[in-house]
Design a binder for these strands. Structure first.
Lengths: 95, 95
DNA sequence: TGGTCATATGCCTGTCAAGGAATGCGAGGC
DNA sequence: GCCTCGCATTCCTTGACAGGCATATGACCA
């Protein structure tokens, strides 16, 4: 999901402000179908929501699924805040 | 990278303790070549280091690359800690 | 209702990655 | 020196996915 650079770019842009599909197409310099497909993936992953405004679809980011990523990262973050310095010293010493 | 469930399982296991390839094979119930290939990917990504102990290769996690993930997540985390409640209220209201 | 605009979907192709089977390779034990 | 063990690498097949083009859908306007 976040492995796709294009999708991260979409999220980074939607993080600043919601956008229509056309705006994203212009910003990404990609074909419109490609953008729509990425948006579909993001939609099904729950990372974005969309509302219909006239003929446009306005996409907006939904942060909640990212908390799962943050939760997964939690134990690791604890490790490096606790022991990173010691680990670095260890790794440097064995190079 | 982290999109692969198998690799996340490997990391989750190495987070608790370093392991040899054989231990990982047994823990994951996968073929040995498959595990070695995933370890190669993780090695080239800098997420694990390995040392040679007798005939075994002992793999150990390296947390430093995960800080990049954490950094990428930073702006989003700020958003939800600041505004998640408001966003949830907004989304609920428009369902 | 016919036409147009904004978006979604289907079809096609190229690319890439995962997994298994077989094999190569270095370290130890006899 | 040979054989075995632990792991890495190669080859192969299969499946997933990105991107483009063409086309469908759906909302609005004349």
């Amino acid at each position: 999901m976040l492995a796709e650079p294009t999708r991260r770019r979409i999220l980074d842009r939607l993080r600043r402000s919601e956008s229509s599909v056309g705006e994203l197409v212009a910003a990404l310099g990609m074909s419109q179908p490609a953008v729509s497909k990425h948006l579909k993936v993001l939609r099904e992953a729950g990372l974005v929501t969309c509302r219909t405004a006239a003929q446009q679809r306005i996409y907006r980011i939904d942060l909640r699924p990212l908390r799962a990523v943050d939760d997964w990262l939690g134990p690791y973050r604890r490790m490096w805040t606790d022991h990173l310095d010691a680990l670095e010293r260890h790794l440097d010493s064995q190079e």
